[in-house]
Design a protein around this nucleic acid. Structure first.
Length: 203
DNA sequence: ACCGGGATGTTCT
DNA sequence: GAACATCCCGGTG
C-alpha cells in the first residue's frame, strides 16, 4: 500500500467494460468514511437498454453525459441513492455503478447510519447501502471525484485489481439482462448477495 | 435457506 | 399510472 493518490482522468476516459474491473481495489472516501471497491457494474450509455442514459439526456441523468471522473448519484425506489463513476469521453454517458465496498475507515459512523446492518459485512454490500453508510446523497451528484470536489474522492492506494475478477450478469434490471457486465473481487465477504452457505465470519 | 410483500417518491410514458 | 440499477422484515421449512 502506497500513499493514496487521486486517479488520473485519462484512466477513466475509457470503455466502462475496461474501467469497471480496473476500479476494483480503488478507495472511495467521503466525510471521514472510506471503503475499498469490491463490486461494480458497467452501464454503456445510449446503446444500453438498462442504462439511465438509454433514451437520451434528461434532468436526472445529465451528469452521465459529462466528463470522466464525475460522480453520478440518482434517487430510486422512493428512498435510496446509488452512486456511479462517469467514464469514457464526454457525451458517451458511460458509467460504472459502485455496488459494494469493504469498509476501511469511519466504521463507527457507518454503523450509526445503518442500524439495520447487524454485521460489518452488511454496511456497504449493496449500491444503496454504501451510499447510506457514507452519507452520499443527490447533493453530491456531479462532484468531481478526482479533485475531492465537495469532499468526495476516489483514490488508488496501490492495491492492484484482482487478476481474475468474478464476472456475471448485472442484477436488479429487467432490460439487457444478457450482458455479463458485473465484476467483483473473488472471495471477498463484502460483495452483495454472496452468502457463503453455512459459514459465518466474525464481524 | 428461500420466498413474498411493503416502504416510499421521482421519473418517464 | 407504471416502473424503478433497492432494502428490510417476517413467514415458512
Amino acid at each position: 500500500m502506497n500513499a493514496p493518490a487521486p486517479l488520473e482522468r485519462f484512466a477513466l476516459a475509457r470503455d466502462p467494460l475496461d474501467v469497471a474491473p480496473w476500479l476494483l481495489g480503488k478507495v472511495l472516501s467521503y466525510g471521514g468514511c472510506s471503503g475499498r471497491i469490491v463490486e461494480v457494474e458497467a452501464y454503456r450509455g445510449a446503446d444500453d437498454a438498462a442504462s439511465h442514459a438509454f433514451g437520451g439526456q434528461s434532468t436526472r441523468n445529465q451528469t452521465m453525459f459529462g466528463r470522466a471522473g464525475l460522480l453520478y448519484v440518482y434517487f430510486t425506489y422512493g428512498m435510496h441513492y446509488c452512486a456511479n463513476v462517469v467514464c469514457g469521453e464526454e457525451g458517451t454517458a458511460w458509467a460504472v455503478l459502485v455496488r459494494a465496498l469493504e469498509p476501511l475507515a469511519g466504521i463507527d459512523e457507518m454503523r450509526r447510519r445503518r442500524p439495520a446492518a447487524h454485521h460489518d459485512r452488511d454496511l456497504c454490500n449493496g449500491p444503496a447501502k454504501l451510499c447510506e453508510a457514507l452519507g452520499i446523497t443527490r447533493e453530491l451528484d456531479g462532484a468531481d471525484l478526482l479533485t475531492a470536489d465537495r469532499g468526495i474522492v476516489l483514490e488508488d492506494d496501490g492495491t492492484s485489481p484482482p487478476s481474475e475478477p468474478h464476472c456475471g450478469p448485472r442484477v436488479g434490471i429487467t432490460k439487457a439482462v444478457e450482458h455479463p457486465w458485473r465484476w467483483s473481487w473473488p472471495g471477498s465477504t463484502f460483495v452483495s448477495r454472496a452468502r457463503p452457505a453455512g459459514r459465518s465470519s466474525p464481524n
